[in-house]
């Protein structure tokens, strides 16, 4: 307990930044992943190819390499510079979006073809067929896999510790600088992740599943 109380500043800053990384990356990856899933079911072959290429290229690259690129490679390009934490958000979002896209695409496949045929038959173009008829039904069936993706994202934020972002994964380093015992410190970090998942994400998942329960 002393490790936690004596170093509450370290824990607070760490988890605050973890929260920031998670929240922004979750929102951005949800938006980007939905767009990419839409591209992958588009009638235009070029859109499908672009979406497939993006998912295959990014999903098959280790997250560490993606974050290393944004923390170490990107600053050398002649582009507007961004802070380490923003770089981490960009990397995490791009990476997570591929998983979000695949979860949503599997949800799209659960919506019967008849639904989109009926939408097209009343004259809705592709974008509206997708956004008004297919996606609202697809989201209901992707809540569980989507939350698995977001739980993985929450834990993946700790990789950013390796690239100069002061978040929960970096707490260990700060504690060891202060000469604190490592094992209790790590256990506290682990416990807090469990609390975050069980205390926030799981109830949210349950709530959404209930709210969007498919009427059949």
């Amino acid at each position: 307990m002393n490790v936690l109380l004596d170093n509450s500043d370290v824990f607070l800053t760490g988890f605050k930044n973890t929260g920031i990384l998670f929240a922004f990356s979750a929102v951005f990856s949800l938006i980007l992943g939905t767009i990419v899933a839409g591209m992958r079911v588009s009638p235009a072959p070029a859109m499908r190819a672009a979406g497939t290429f993006y998912v295959n290229a990014v999903r098959n690259t280790p997250l560490t390499l993606i974050l290393a690129f944004f923390a170490l490679g990107y600053p050398r390009l002649e582009l507007p510079q961004i802070s380490f934490i923003n770089a981490a958000i960009v990397g995490l979002s791009l990476y997570t979006a591929t998983y979000v896209s695949e979860a949503i695409r599997s949800g799209i496949n659960t919506v019967s073809v008849g639904q989109s045929e009926a939408a097209r038959a009343i004259g809705l173009p592709f974008m509206q067929t997708l956004s008004l008829v297919v996606l609202p039904q697809a989201f209901r069936s992707v809540v569980p896999p989507l939350f698995s993706v977001f739980i993985a994202l929450l834990k993946n934020t700790t990789v950013a510790a390796g690239f100069s972002v002061y978040e929960a994964g970096a707490i260990r380093a700060y504690l060891s600088e202060r000469g604190e015992p490592l094992l209790p410190g790590l256990l506290w970090v682990a416990l807090m992740f469990v609390v975050l998942v069980l205390g926030i994400l799981t109830p949210l998942q349950r709530y959404l599943e209930k709210k969007w329960k498919v009427a059949r």
């Binding site: 019967s112 008849g114 639904q115 045929e117 009926a118 939408a119 097209r120 038959a121 009343i122 004259g123 809705l124 173009p125 008004l132 008829v133 609202p136 039904q137 209901r140 498919v214 009427a215 059949r216």
Partner: peptide, 30 residues
């Protein structure tokens, strides 16, 4: 094509009503 489809009504064997919308919304969406 979408514009032209709006002029051609279609009724399917399996109804294909939009499952997440009310009866009224099904009719007003178009």
């Amino acid at each position: 094509l979408a514009r032209l489809r709006a002029d051609v009504g279609m009724v399917f064997q399996s109804f294909n009503l939009f499952a997440h919308k009310t009866i009224l919304e099904n009719v007003t969406l178009g």
